[in-house]
Design a binder for these strands. Sequence first.
DNA 1: CTATGTGAACTACTTCACAGCT
DNA 2: AGCTGTGAAGTAGTTCACATAG
Lengths: 205, 205
Amino acid sequence: MPAKVDIPRKSIYRLSIYQRCLQRLRENQVDTVSSAALAKAAGVKSTQLRKDLAYFGQLGTRGLGYNVDALSGTIGDVLGQNKLQPVILVGVGNLGSALMRYGGFRKEGFEIAAAFDLAPRKVPGVNVPVLAMTDMPDFIRRQNVKMAILSVPASSAQSVVNEMVQHGIQAILNFSPTVLDVPENVVVNSVDLAVELENLSYFIR
Amino acid sequence: MPAKVDIPRKSIYRLSIYQRCLQRLRENQVDTVSSAALAKAAGVKSTQLRKDLAYFGQLGTRGLGYNVDALSGTIGDVLGQNKLQPVILVGVGNLGSALMRYGGFRKEGFEIAAAFDLAPRKVPGVNVPVLAMTDMPDFIRRQNVKMAILSVPASSAQSVVNEMVQHGIQAILNFSPTVLDVPENVVVNSVDLAVELENLSYFIR
DNA sequence: CTATGTGAACTACTTCACAGCT
DNA sequence: AGCTGTGAAGTAGTTCACATAG
């Protein structure tokens, strides 16, 4: 795989969007698509799409466009979708249990291998074990889990993160409304609902 | 209020973070804070914080720092937090009902005024009316609602958006995994769980 | 003639360096 | 002396313009 260092994070985000559009094309038996058409579906400019894809080699055919299957496969490799990636979820509250019930992850190559909570109890209708927080370190090591979804209250987020990271978690999707402090080699994406709403609120007059 | 046109969107996001940190300072009876200290808490560089704040005037005192109450008030004004902003939520599934139960919105100045679903039924433990989709247009107009949270399946997202926008919604927080097409004057922030995970997946080796 | 790939130009954002108040 | 505010410099990301391949 090519060097990851100087590919913009925003390009990576867009690859996911392209991938979704390609999936739809595939379902519709389309086998070739131009940058213009795919860009339209993804809501970006065609030059941007071509730049994004060019980071990963010459993926298209001049005069013709991109092969849907091949492009989708390449993007899947880049995003690590092509092998099921185990993820743990920590904090089985309102949001946590809703996320456990959300089926969309598996389709995109992720599997919630287990959930953890201080007061573990089964989430109805979901086939994921809910374990005690004290079982987390062991689970991470044994199953070699690298990714975690964090949906605990803000007050305990940092301490949970410290423990996760210490036992091998390298990437965290954070839903707690707080700024997390992590080592250089750990990636955090934060989804902060209040921040998103406030941002919208600013842009309405 | 000053012209919104050339203030970077990222600055607005950061204002929300600063606001949270200020709130904590306020709880601890701190009344003055330096850009260095606040920036540290927010996880940004102090120059960036000062630039962000400078868009809204001279808010600090040279040699001293920023008054916590005053700064928090100004940011609240900018973000429209100082009057309770009504929001509707459309799509009362797993995620939708979890969002309804999430208490954090009100604290930040937002109130879920009503929720809408094709098959409306009360969400236990929440004091928000759940109404039929057909009631939405009227509700938006009568209550003059400008903001919406969208948590419907991808397949119906665009048509719901079209209807919302037609009746006056100006800002949408979108949880559906799809690209929305909206008029120029409508703002959309999308939170796409699969995209966030894929992005993390890319950055772990 | 069509559509990709890409250096060059441009735009947006961040950081620096330091002037200006208190 | 201490800390903010800000033009200037630097960096990152986007768009343009066009050479290149089918």
